[in-house]
């Protein structure tokens, strides 16, 4: 589903990703962990073209991201993204946030988009907030709307960029619960996170990144219980 080969990303003289190789299968849930500045978010953002690739290749559902002829907007419709800071459209009601892309990008009918949005908002537990503006919602509610908004395009893959890092500890759970449901439904997910509990419980595979490289990857059991690499051990001893 996602093939990443020798991916390199430079910001000027800053070499942020140094030869990432990674293959993510359909229905797989992959959690990417690692210290700040390790390149996890950049790696994720390369997967839907929010960052351009310096060298190497990424293939998502047969779309080659490093090919300039690839229509990046098609890739983005297939790979939904959830951001750390939600990035809801403040001037649109919750329901309109969810309906915008189906209406303008997928060109679905208003009735269809609305029915879908209502269904998705019910799914994330926010049916009663449909007509509220994002500014009146809590962070956890905003992030759940953001998940519904991404799902409205029927993505085949969901990319999560530290979805709970900006949330108060007591409301992290409501967002993780929605993500867990999604994983159980078989959504292919790549989750950059600091929530080790979530990674341990939900991930099929955990990737540990440091200084722009994948240091170690394996099942949650392998990474959390018997980490092989010194840097993984050092990182986990600090966060667990």
């Amino acid at each position: 589903m996602i093939f990443v080969e020798n991916l390199n990303k430079k910001f000027g003289p800053n070499h942020v990703l140094k030869g990432i190789d990674c293959h993510i299968r359909e229905r797989e849930v992959v959690c990417v962990i690692g210290p700040s500045g390790s390149g996890k978010s950049t790696f994720l953002r390369c997967m839907n073209g929010l960052e351009t690739i310096s060298s190497g290749s990424i293939v998502i559902n047969k779309h080659r991201l490093d090919d300039s002829k690839t229509n990046i907007n098609l890739v983005r419709q297939e790979a939904g993204m959830v951001f750390q800071h939600f990035n809801l459209f403040p001037h649109l009601k919750v329901i309109d946030n969810v309906m915008l892309a189906p209406l303008k990008v997928a060109k679905t009918s208003k009735e269809e988009a609305r029915a879908k949005a209502e269904m998705l908002l019910a799914k994330v537990g926010l049916a009663e907030k449909m007509d509220a503006f994002p500014g009146n919602l809590s962070g956890g509610q905003q992030q759940r709307v953001a998940i519904a908004r991404a799902l409205a395009m029927d993505p085949k893959i969901m990319l999560f960029d530290e979805p709970t890092s900006a949330l108060d500890p007591e409301i992290v759970g409501e967002v993780l619960a929605v993500m867990k449901d999604l994983a159980q439904e078989g959504m292919t997910m790549v989750v950059v996170t600091h929530e080790m509990g979530f990674a341990r419980e939900v991930a099929d595979r955990v990737i540990f990144m440091d200084q722009g490289r994948i240091v170690e990857e394996g099942t949650p059991e392998e990474i959390f219980s018997t980490p092989q690499h010194g840097r993984t051990q050092g990182f986990l001893s600090k966060v667990l």
Binding site: F83, H85, F89, A101, V105, A150, M153
Partner: peptide
Amino acid sequence: VPHGLREAGKALGMKPAQIVQYIVLLP
């Protein structure tokens, strides 16, 4: 206007003109 709003539009597959029209203009 926060850059994140444009990014959210991009991530949904919206074209630059659509992002300006539907996302950036009102804020």
